[in-house]
């Protein structure tokens, strides 16, 4: 089922990944290789385990007490679920942006600086804040009031601040869990433009409900759906243009043409 266009360019690879909540298998046998410096979209109907897979990539599922995995996720050739791996380190290397903007109830400056500081950043903090805010296309809007509370920003600005915050800890991969679902169309477009700019330096995996968004903004698309036993599985994975114009699987075609989901 895996489509691996270029084996050397894979940054993170799920091998035969199954995720369980207690005895319920939420996702089964996913083989997914994410390519470096590409935007990979994960689409599919509600409840098919898209977010669960995304959260498995930086071990955020650890906080769900009943969650456990089968299979491996290889990052730099290392299984991130191996006992010798510290999940804290994994999350620093693989950042995350959440569905609802969740800036810290602190100043804009402090939102960015905090993550860098706890991860032992020793350089010039002002410079880092400016650079990351610029990278997140937010600098011009907030440069005059960095001391202002982040909660005073608009939803779209907050989400870009959350992206900037993730960039400040220097990750290699950024996971985005429906980052635009709480935003208006203009803010959504800004985030999509930003993703395109960021993909030069980072690899991005985005879960989205919005098929137009996946078609517009991603390089590769993975389509997930549910089995009869409600376990999520990956149906098809390939170039976005191919998935949306010449899907190989009937189920993918039904979904993207709106006959299902």
């Amino acid at each position: 089922m895996t489509t691996q266009t270029n084996e050397n360019n894979i940054i993170i690879q799920a091998n035969d990944l199954s995720i369980y909540y207690g005895s319920f298998r939420a996702v089964k046998n996913v083989n997914l290789g994410i390519q470096r410096n590409k935007i990979t979209a994960i689409i599919g109907p509600s409840g098919c385990g898209k977010s669960t897979v995304l959260r498995a990539f930086n071990r955020m599922n650890d906080f769900v007490q009943s969650a456990h995995n089968d299979g491996k996720i290889l990052f730099h050739g290392q299984d991130i679920y191996a006992p010798e791996v510290d999940p804290v380190q994994v999350r620093q290397m693989i950042g995350m942006v959440f569905q609802k903007p969740n800036p810290f109830p602190k100043s804009i400056y402090e939102n960015i600086a905090w993550g860098a500081r706890i991860n032992g950043y020793k350089g010039n903090m002002d410079e880092l804040v400016e650079n990351t805010l610029q990278a997140a296309a937010l600098w011009d809007e907030v440069k005059d009031n960095l001391k202002k509370s982040a909660l005073a920003l608009s939803g779209g600005q907050q989400q870009r601040l959350c992206i900037a915050r993730a960039l400040a800890v220097k990750p290699e991969i950024i996971l985005m869990d429906e980052p635009c679902s709480a935003l208006d169309p203009i803010a959504t477009l800004k985030i999509e433009d930003l993703m395109r700019e960021l993909s030069v330096k980072y690899s991005i995996i985005i879960v989205t409900h919005n098929m137009q968004q996946a078609a517009r903004a991603s390089d590769l698309t993975a389509f997930f759906t549910m089995d009869e036993d409600r376990a999520g599985l990956m149906v098809e994975y390939g170039e976005t243009s191919q998935i949306f114009t010449r899907p190989k699987d009937k189920r993918t075609e039904d979904y993207i043409t709106g006959r299902f989901g």
């Binding site: 930086n58 955020m60 906080f63 804290v88 380190q89 999350r91 620093q92 290397m93 950042g95 995350m96 959440f98 609802k100 969740n102 800036p103 810290f104 109830p105 905090w114 993550g115 706890i118 991860n119 959350c162 915050r165 993730a166 800890v169």
Partner: peptide, 19 residues
């Protein structure tokens, strides 16, 4: 969401609780 934001940045449990 606040805890997750903190963990997502590579914070430890104690850093999340304290900060």
């Amino acid at each position: 969401s606040l805890r997750q934001a903190s963990y997502g940045l590579g914070a430890t449990k104690w850093q999340t609780i304290w900060n």
